[in-house]
């Protein structure tokens, strides 16, 4: 396995873990996340599920160090992300929910920006690495296109490919399989699992995708309205007795008695 990695010209990667300690966030005094504590082990695939608006994207942005918490700390590989040098020492990638592609650059240049700016490879290796990432996500024909010429799902795939080229030790995915067809979603799930198998990459995945959570996750966290309800293995989460968790994972579609007409709907 390692031999294989060296042959492919991969850089050495080590597994890193992360820890969120008593984390809270409010925007203009409106609390979005309340006292979250969780730990992701090195090499783990950790999935966070939760309804829309529960604060998942906000949590990922803080883990990536893009915003400062109102309270609490985020420790990655033993270092506080609030420290400016931490990010320089880490190799971490964030796949944004909306892609966040560079609109003025072609797809190829989007992927090549990171290795170019950090002077990682010579021209031929760079080209080969970028094309390999594009092929993994069936994007080889889109290399010359600009983000505005892509479909929503393609943009998502380019964002994932861009993270792959960075060869990080920790990848944060914000809904990697939304907007994708079932086959493509399965491919993404395989890619995430394979990165762990081959390189010990740690993955923190935000997703509504039950297949993803229940097949490859080591542990699943359920986040609702800013609170962490449960953190457990997929098998235990499936058997959860918490009615909110049950309803979230297996919503019963009842046309006669729709939930938006129930009294306690908004709680």
């Amino acid at each position: 396995m390692n031999q294989n990695a060296v042959e492919n010209g991969e850089r050495q990667r080590s597994s890193i873990g992360l820890k969120i300690e008593n984390f809270s966030k409010s925007y203009d005094l409106v609390p979005v996340l309340n006292n979250i504590s969780l730990e992701v082990n090195p090499g783990e695939i950790f999935v966070i599920m939760g309804p829309s608006g529960s604060g998942k994207s906000v949590l990922l942005k803080h883990v990536a160090g893009l915003e400062t918490p109102t309270n609490g700390r985020i420790i990655i590989d033993g270092k506080d992300i609030a420290q400016p040098r931490t990010r320089r020492e880490l190799s971490m990638a964030l796949v944004f929910q909306a892609g966040a592609l560079f609109n003025s650059m072609s797809v190829f240049d989007n992927l090549a920006l990171y290795p170019r700016e950090h002077r990682l490879y010579d021209r031929a290796t760079l080209r080969q690495k970028v094309m390999r990432a594009l092929e993994t996500l069936s994007l080889q024909d889109a290399a010359k296109k600009h983000p505005s010429q892509l479909s929503g799902g393609m943009r998502k795939r380019v964002a994932i490919a861009r993270a792959l080229v960075m060869e990080p030790e920790l990848i944060l995915y914000d809904e990697p399989t939304s907007e994708l067809d079932p086959t493509m979603a399965a491919t993404i799930i395989e890619v995430i699992a394979d990165l762990r198998e081959e390189f010990g990459v740690t993955s923190l995945v935000v997703s509504h995708d039950r297949d993803l959570a229940l097949t490859i996750a080591d542990r699943v966290a359920i986040l609702m309205h800013g609170d962490l309800l449960e953190v457990d293995t997929p098998a235990n989460i499936k058997r959860s007795e918490n009615p909110k968790v049950k309803d979230f994972l297996n919503p019963v579609i009842d046309i006669k008695n729709p939930r938006f007409k129930k009294k306690d709907y908004s709680s």
Binding site: K61, A64, G65, L66, R87, R88, M92, A93, L94, F96, A98, A100, L101, F102, N103, S104, L113, Y114, E117, H118, M166
Partner: peptide, 25 residues
């Protein structure tokens, strides 16, 4: 206009997560 668009559409955030300081490029 260009930088504001990049900021609003999170391209600047993406640069930061790639360890490429926006001021530099």
């Amino acid at each position: 206009a260009e930088l504001a668009t990049m900021k609003v559409y999170q391209e600047v955030d993406a640069l930061v997560t790639m360890n490429i300081p926006p001021e530099r490029i």
